[in-house]
Simulated assay, not measured.
Amino acid sequence: MSWLQGRYELAAVFGAVGGPLAYYAGAEMGATEALPSVSGMLVLMAVWALATPFLVWLAGYLKGGGARTGKAP
């Protein structure tokens, strides 16, 4: 997901939507028996909305590019 380098707002949106959606899909497939409540899903949204941009930044930093602001080559 190098195309997210420097696009932290977009990464937050993807995290807020994709994180809980993946958890819900896994629960629907039987990976867990407990579906989170509405408040639990809101917590998952908040956590993934913060974690995804951080992980995008960390990947760029560890790759040696630091906190890039443009598109990946």
Rank of each mutant, 00 (worst) to 15 (best):
G30I: 01
V38W: 13
A12K: 02
T32Y: 07
M41F: 15
G60R: 02
Y61N: 10
A51C: 10
A59R: 14
W57N: 02
A59Q: 14
P36R: 03
T32I: 08
Y61R: 14
A34S: 14
A25W: 10
W57H: 02
A27M: 09
V56Q: 00
L10F: 03
P53H: 05
G19A: 04
G60V: 03
G18E: 09
F14A: 11
L62T: 10
A34E: 12
A31E: 12
G18I: 06
Y61A: 13
L21G: 09
L42Q: 08
A46F: 05
T52I: 06
P36L: 10
W48R: 01
A46S: 10
L35F: 15
L55C: 12
F14P: 00
A31I: 08
Y23V: 13
G19C: 04
P36S: 10
G26R: 12
P20C: 08
T32A: 13
M29F: 15
M45K: 00
L62N: 08
L10N: 00
A49G: 11
E33R: 08
P53A: 05
A59G: 14
F54W: 13
G60I: 03
L42Y: 08
L62H: 09
V47M: 09
Y24S: 06
V13G: 09
L44G: 05
Y61G: 07
M41Y: 15
F14I: 13
P36M: 07
A25M: 15
M41D: 03
S37M: 11
V17W: 11
A27I: 09
L55F: 14
V47S: 04
G30V: 03
